[in-house]
């Protein structure tokens, strides 16, 4: 069955890509439509996530190398990154603190438990950092991973159109914001928007994950 799940996932992804090219809209973002379609198929066919895990492990084997490969757009856009290093550094640092603080405060305001608040704090960064950082501050790692996925898809789908509504046309700042709040998933969309957006988003997701790992243990108790 593993082969069937892999073929299904690739077929759904290719279809979703064609759909996004044919009907360009935030709602046709391939990560979003593919994930939704596969979940619907599995729920309808009574397939559990456990059955899909061997296929998942094979398909995600290249996720690490693919993230490493983001160094190439970074390299090609090194001039603009160096030129705007300070605004980028401040933007990512303050943006990361704002997204952590607002996640915790909104969770508290909605009356969610402290375990959920701690898992929410790490939602903007890439999964390996989120899992470890959540455990340190008393959050549930599995729940943190689910929030990371949701934040990533949200950023990929709604990040670019919201920035457009906000009249943010500067490609550098667009990429920076998407990478900071929605890690690799947002970056996968930023890469498609343009080379500068992709490069800056890659740098931002890497940097945001490092900042989060460093500040969260003392920043979270202050909130």
């Amino acid at each position: 069955m593993t082969v069937v799940y892999i073929v299904l996932t690739i077929a759904v992804y290719l279809g979703a890509r064609l759909l996004s090219i044919r009907f360009s809209s935030p709602l046709t973002t391939p990560v979003f439509t593919s994930t939704a379609a596969i979940i619907i198929v599995f729920l309808a066919g009574d397939v559990s996530y456990e059955e899909y895990i061997p296929a998942k492990n094979i398909m995600t084997f290249l996720l690490g190398p693919a993230t490493v490969a983001l160094a190439v757009p970074l390299y090609h856009n090194r001039a603009v990154l160096m030129e705007r290093f300070l605004p980028a550094f401040i933007g990512i640092t303050v943006g990361t603190m704002a997204t952590i603080a607002s996640a915790v405060w909104l969770s508290a305001a909605f009356g969610l438990s402290e375990t959920i608040q701690a898992a929410a704090a790490v939602k903007a960064v890439t999964t390996p950092v989120a899992i470890e950082a959540a455990a340190i501050i008393g959050g549930d790692p599995a729940l943190a991973a689910a929030f990371v996925m949701t934040a990533g898809i949200f950023g990929a789908v709604f990040g670019p159109p919201l920035l457009t509504i906000f009249r943010m046309k500067d490609p550098f700042s667009r990429g920076l914001a998407v990478g900071t709040v929605s890690h690799g998933i947002g970056t996968s969309q930023a890469v498609l928007e343009g080379p500068v957006q992709g490069a800056v988003s890659s740098a931002a997701m890497g940097f945001a994950s490092i900042i989060t790992a460093l500040i969260l243990p003392w920043f979270f108790p202050l909130l």
């Binding site: 979940i39 899909y52 998942k56 995600t60 996720l63 996925m149 990533g152 998933i185 996968s188």
Partner: peptide, 13 residues
């Protein structure tokens, strides 16, 4: 890159 996140995001189910 987006493709590699799909199998993980399906975990939301």
């Amino acid at each position: 890159l987006g493709f590699f996140f799909i199998p993980i995001a399906v975990g939301l189910m």
